[in-house]
Nucleic acid binder design. Structure first.
Lengths: 349, 349
DNA sequence: TTGTATGCGTTATCAG
DNA sequence: CTGATAACGCATACAA
């Protein structure tokens, strides 16, 4: 026995009407007699009729489904974003298909292929750290697929985008370290091709400059896998330790990198903020319980997911092409957790 | 310009064939001449033909979509499960629609309603902490919808289930606390109606009994919202503090409850394990970095998602009704994190 | 081996 | 106001 749904046909047969009449009763308000309409609606209600969305999709050539490409579901930042995406999508009657790039360009490409083959109505994309080539994305965009980029955007493709104010977030994080007395602040960041990496780097550099601290390339380490491979963070830090100018603080510019840093510091028995200052972008939920608690830059992930989805649905549902492609910028939040001031002042000269 | 896909018709027209011939070339190997087949396949490849999954769904009366009901996406335990679900589903060509109950029975019911109306082929369910009434679930199960329960199962409904060995996990966690010297071990658990809560409670009680410690109802506190509402944990702990028999340790039986406990202890300035022993079920990723690190019971969430999905697809794809409804039990992992032994020995009499 | 016709569930169009 | 018919894209029973 298969799960069988009630169809319009069943109603028509039961009521001795034609399918078109039933359909009209269920949709229209005019062009149908009140009695018939009432009859149909009551019966439909009674047997719990649900229109078959697949048949509707075929007819309307709309799947009411949007595709999402993220790095990893099991990552606080992304799962919060997905939460936001789902909340808006569901409210508007859309389904969401999620796929993960795991920061690999190949996986991202095959996901793209998979999603477009599933006849989705639109696409939410945060590109992988490996993605240098945007031909695939560009092609499906040119073929008319609505796309909204979030977080890791692609400048070359003209469409709506949602990002956080990475520059200011990084600026304030760095500024905070400086105000705490650190002067040799290293920066651990994602693959330099990523938009977020560039913007955060710029914020970091500007903060240094504004406080009269010399920029120093040896203090900047790129993790091209975004910290997916734990080892790369350790190698980056090892290189930093070996610098002539040894860092006294680290600004880590993603969740994975921040947690990775914490792990390595622990492993090497380096305590922050006494031996080493630390601040990072993080949306995880235990940073405040560390001892000492870690100050972080928190991103409005849920809101980003919501906003990106709203923009995508606008693209999907608008009858006319949208010309003014907005880039919406959300504020980050610098969460300063103290109990550390005393130790830090020792470091101050 | 809308995103238009190539159809079998386009190929037929371009090649001067009928749609059925093209369809056969794309599916069958027999009943078609090798030349025609080659011609069609090459052309299809060239113009990047992708069969329309919606049309297929309508024809086969199969959506190739499974529904999932979890508590919250943005929860490490569930996001890891979803990761496992997605990995298997995608490999087998299925989509996944996720919906969240937020531990509310009403939301769960409306999600159930929504999912079944989306013509899904099967359902993966972890019931909410509020779900006392299984009529809805039972009804759609009886109507032939394949269902697999995971984690929070429903005994009354006969179908495949995947759980972890909650009893042993709780037993070992409690035993560990006992071995550390604690004798007044409180238990913070989910709504008592949940299968996982019952099993974990049983493990806890048996461990106490096996070590000659008297069972004591005042040491057991239920959080009926599963810790979704931070306040309920605080209230539970406050009641515990007021006990005549004051607890010297807590066994928290979920991720949320464990983290909630950590927060309250911190807030009250009670340090573990010196002032209060603590162990909990947790799949979060910073518990090892706390100072001191927290020992936890870790659940194989990813594997649970994979296994549940495999079982569901088996139900969906089997032609004959499956009679032996398995309940697969996965092992939990007790992760003991030391650096705490010294302090604890002080507590030992 | 290939083409024609039909149906999956629904709605839009046309005829009555 | 209502009923018959075609169409969305595909696969298949049947006819050729």
């Amino acid at each position: 026995m298969k799960f069988e749904a009630v169809t319009i046909k069943d109603i028509a047969k039961a009521l001795g009407l034609s399918t078109s009449t039933v359909s009209r009763a269920l949709r229209d308000s005019y062009e149908i007699s009140p009695e018939t309409k009432k009859l149909v609606l009551e019966y439909a209600e009674k047997i719990n009729y649900q229109p078959n969305p697949i048949a509707l999709s075929l007819k309307e050539r709309k799947s009411h489904t949007i595709g999402v490409i993220v790095g990893e579901i099991a990552n606080n930042f992304f799962s919060q974003i997905i939460n936001g995406i789902e909340s808006v999508a569901k409210e508007k009657g859309y389904n969401v298909i999620i796929s993960q790039s795991h920061e690999s360009f190949d996986k991202e490409s095959s996901n793209l292929q998979y999603l477009t083959s599933r006849s989705i109505d639109g696409l939410l994309v945060s590109v992988s750290a490996e993605t240098l080539n945007f031909d695939n994305l560009n092609e499906i965009h040119k073929r008319g697929m609505p796309i909204v980029f979030f977080d890791r955007i692609v400048d070359e493709i003209k469409t709506h985008k949602v990002i956080v104010d990475n520059f200011t977030g990084a600026y304030n994080a760095t500024k905070h370290l400086i105000e705490m007395g650190y002067r040799n602040i290293a920066h651990l960041c994602n693959a330099s091709i990523l938009s977020i990496a560039k913007e955060r780097l710029a914020g970091y550099l500007t903060a240094l400059k504004d406080h009269g601290i010399m920029e120093d390339d040896t203090m900047i380490k790129y993790c091209k896998h975004g910290g997916m491979i734990a080892q790369e963070i350790e190698e980056a830090l090892n290189e930093l330790w070996k610098n002539k100018r040894r860092p006294d603080a680290i600004f880590a510019s993603s969740d994975k990198l921040t947690i990775g840093c914490l792990r390595i510091l622990k492993k090497k028995n380096i305590s922050f903020p006494k031996d080493m200052g630390l601040i990072g972008f993080s949306n995880g939920d235990l940073t405040d319980l560390l001892d000492p608690p870690l100050s972080v830059v928190r991103q409005p992930a849920f809101e980003m997911g919501q906003l990106a989805t709203q923009m995508l649905l606008q693209l999907i549902e608008s009858k006319y092409p949208i010309t003014n492609h907005e880039t919406r910028v959300l504020s980050t939040e610098l969460i300063i957790r103290n109990s550390t001031t005393i130790q830090v002042e020792k470091i101050l000269k």
